[in-house]
Design a protein around this nucleic acid. Structure first.
Length: 775
DNA sequence: AGCACGCCGACT
DNA sequence: GTCGGCGTGCTC
């Protein structure tokens, strides 16, 4: 961000100064003197060790220069300690350095922080540092003042104050060099002890690899095309065409998982033939393993798999092999989008709607968007694949921002019916229509699956007359039933209410608890069908790999007539297609406090429909609902995506939610409630007052949103849903903007301004661009 | 963010 | 006094 890489022509001896970014929450870069020995070799992208405050850090060189920055006196500049090597000079490939910067800009995060994303895994570890601790002998020596030297006593006292020890770099890095010798002599005397620095303790080796064994049993089917209606050749040729162009392109593939994987295999093979490489990104580690295995199946492709559960030491080796193009196909979770693949030809995002593609901490990037940045920079084809495309992706399609191809592969589905639960008797779990259909399916032994979407909905209150859920008046969030207290409780503000006798919306008397869950459904099935074999599939019965594997077996061996379960039933290849699927509470989840609630419910129900056999094979789906007119239900009923998406889009547009606008959420937190409030208000006025300054790094030309209002809608500040967390008060501001770029530019300018202003020293300003979890 | 300094209350 | 928690400030 500082300094121009192509500054002044430098002397033959090489550059005098280097701008370095470090992996810390710091906005700018830091300038260092280049030692004579490095002058001829140092290049942009090199990893270097630099003294930083009291410690030594790894950083990356982002610019070389012959003049020191005017803001810092020359004698304050420190010298680069060394080049990081692992045989050769370690360096960050230029495209990745650039990618890190683009991410930093797009998500208003420090470039140095984004540097972490592209660093080789090994380099993340601490630089073999050590700590110094005071020994018992040293304590005695201090107590007895066994040394006349005040320097020695000072040092001993300092060490004593810090039972966890002080880092070697800290002690040695002090201004006077005598410390070094002093320390050595104290170690020799046995007063001070040197220990290896434990470094980052959050190495996550504990998680271990996912339980792949139980799962492998079911991989066999994954690539078998669903049914005869799949005509892949057309889409294969479209992909071939897009790959042959060797230009950045985006393509949407809407198809069921087996078809998608078949297409991926084809695309991967074609990309490799071109001499280019393939990157596949998915939300979950488990699915990454599955896809990697599927791609590698016949040995044609050697796909590496990278995700959080892979131990760090293995990651380092994989990173190297990828960089050397020994590994040419990689499947991984979101952070894998930063892997150093060269001559990248294809990036495939599978299940692009998966919220896990969004990083929940700074830098809060979305792997789908980063993938698009990479595809643009490296001339690759980006494929967004899913059974359900997000409205965001679908709208991008219609707007034709980029050359976009859309593949939609349809399967024949089951017949869908809706049962209006408001017409049923009080307390009905299984409507008579569903029971009838179950009886029928059991008689044919075609299999029954009862699907309960109760996520975030366990134990709530619903009105049997109007279908409404009582909401917290201050948060507009559905109340949850709190069993312990027998009362309603708002999950966000914590406010409690007694259970009302009458519905707050329609004043009807039929207010009831629902969401009792799978157990109750299971009991009901057993009561009504005493001879049926019932298996329950939920978080409880699937807990632990052993139990899960056993349950897999039983499902597999068809030791059941009725399966009752949660979303777990939707797992890939868990259940063979059945004759009847019942969605027990199809509208559960519609009341969640999230503007994407309806979209999620719709997707879940479409998935549930996919679990039934096609109607030509007698497949039926019954949706039980209190809100049968809701467009999520109607869309599934009519098997017409536009029924859902048209209505949903008009809601989003009317209420100002994506994809009609872009959202940016700003978080302000601090220990003093008042200053948090003040800072939040200051941010809002700064946002609305600031005439957009041309500070930006003069990237792309703006979209003509230069007017004062900038088309931004600024809401808040309001207390965050959890207004106080770990002693810090939190407020948030919501920004809506037709242009993400305009909003981001504005926010970036204000963050810089606020962080520099003195009254807000201890306040943390946090930005979330395109939030996925809003609250 | 990380890391250490220094202020403050608790306690042998 | 000394121990150790927590708030504060700096990093070329």
């Amino acid at each position: 961000m500082t300094a121009d890489p192509t500054a002044t022509p430098r002397a033959e001896t090489g550059p005098l100064y280097a701008d370095v970014i470090v992996p810390r929450h710091l906005a700018g870069s830091f300038t260092y003197r280049v030692p004579r020995s490095l002058k001829p070799v140092l290049r942009i992208g090199h990893l270097v060790l630099v003294p930083f405050g009291r410690s030594v850090l790894q950083g990356a060189v982002i610019a070389l220069r012959d003049t020191h920055p005017p803001s810092v006196a020359r004698d304050r500049l420190k010298e680069i300690r060394a080049l990081v090597t692992d045989g050769h000079a370690a360096e960050i490939p230029p495209e990745l350095l650039h990618l890190a910067r683009r991410v930093a800009e797009a998500y208003v995060a420090p470039w140095g922080q984004c540097l972490r994303l592209v660093l080789p895994p090994r380099a993340m570890a601490k630089t073999g540092a050590s700590r110094f601790l005071l020994t018992d002998l040293g304590k005695q020596a201090l107590a007895a003042r066994q040394s006349g030297s005040s320097a020695v006593l000072d040092l001993l006292r300092r060490l004593k104050r810090r039972p966890s020890g002080i880092k070697g770099a800290t002690l040695r890095g002090r201004p006077d060099q005598s410390q070094h010798a002093l320390l050595a002599s104290l170690v020799e005397q046995g007063w001070v002890q040197e220990m290896p620095d434990p470094g980052l303790s959050h190495g996550r080796a504990a998680e271990g690899p996912p339980a792949g064994e139980a799962r492998d049993l079911f991989c066999g089917e994954i690539l078998s095309p669903g049914d005869a209606s799949f005509h892949p050749t057309e889409w294969e040729s479209r992909i071939d065409g897009a790959l042959a162009a060797r230009r950045p392109a985006r393509m949407l593939v809407q198809a069921a998982s087996p078809e998608r994987l078949a297409l991926l295999r084809h695309a991967a093979g074609r990309t490799l033939e071109q001499g280019r490489t393939v990157l596949v990104i998915v939300g979950e580690a488990e699915r990454a393993e599955l896809i990697a295995a599927a791609l590698s199946r016949d040995g044609a492709v050697a796909a590496a798999c990278l995700h959080g559960a892979v131990p760090d030491n293995q990651k380092a080796g994989m990173w190297e092999r990828i960089r050397r193009e020994q590994t040419r196909v990689v499947v991984g979770t979101r952070s894998a989008v930063f892997l150093p693949l060269r001559s990248l030809g294809l990036i495939w995002i599978d299940r692009e709607e998966d919220p896990a593609l969004k990083e929940p901490q700074e830098p809060r990037y979305h792997a789908r968007e980063v993938a698009w940045m990479r595809a643009q920079d490296e001339g690759a084809l980006l494929v967004l694949g899913s059974t359900h495309l997000t409205l965001e992706s679908a709208l991008g399609d219609e707007q034709g921002e980029q050359a976009l191809l859309k593949a939609s592969i349809r399967r024949e589905t089951a017949t869908v019916e809706v049962v209006d639960l408001r017409g049923e008797e009080r307390g009905t779990i299984l409507s008579s229509a569903l029971v009838e259909a179950m009886r029928d399916a059991c008689a044919r032994q075609s299999g029954v699956l009862l699907f309960l979407n109760r996520k975030g909905y366990a134990g709530a209150l619903i009105c049997r007359d109007c279908g409404q859920v009582p909401r917290c008046p201050s948060c507009q969030v559905a109340f949850a039933y709190y069993r312990l207290k027998g009362a309603l409780r708002c999950p966000y503000c914590g406010g409690t209410r007694a259970i009302p006798d009458l519905c707050p919306s329609c004043a009807g008397p039929r207010v009831q608890l629902i969401g009792e869950g799978t157990e109750r459904v299971e009991e009901e099935v057993k009561r009504l069908f005493s001879r049926a074999r019932v298996l329950r599939v939920d978080g409880e019965t699937m807990r632990g790999p052993k139990q899960a594997a056993a349950l897999y077996q039983r499902i597999r061996r068809r030791e059941w007539d009725v399966l009752v379960g949660t979303q777990l039933l939707l797992r890939e290849d868990l259940v063979p297609a059945v004759g009847l699927v019942g969605a027990v509470q199809a509208d559960a989840g519609l009341s969640l406090p999230d503007f994407r609630a309806a979209e999620r419910v719709y997707h879940l129900l479409v998935d549930a429909v996919g679990l039934a056999r096609p109607s030509s094979a007698g497949g039926r789906v019954i949706l039980q609902s209190y809100l049968p007119s809701h467009h999520a239900i109607q869309g599934v009923l009519h098997q017409d995506e536009t029924v859902f998406s048209t209505e949903e889009m008009s809601h989003r547009t009317a209420l100002g939610y994506p994809p009609a606008v872009h959202l940016v959420v700003l978080h302000v937190s601090g220990t003093q409630e008042k200053s948090v409030e003040q800072a939040a208000s200051a941010w809002v006025s700064c946002l609305s007052a600031l005439p957009v300054r041309g500070t930006g790094a003069s990237g792309t030309v703006g979209h003509g949103s230069g007017d004062r209002a900038g088309g931004l809608i600024i809401l808040g500040p309001v207390p965050s849903p959890v207004p106080k967390l770990r002693g810090r008060y939190r407020r948030q501001i919501l920004i809506k903007s037709p242009s993400r770029d305009a909003a981001v530019r504005r926010v970036r300018a204000t963050v810089l301004q606020l962080e520099q202003e003195s009254p807000f020293r201890s306040i943390k300003f946090d930005v979330d661009v395109d939030p996925v979890e809003m609250w």
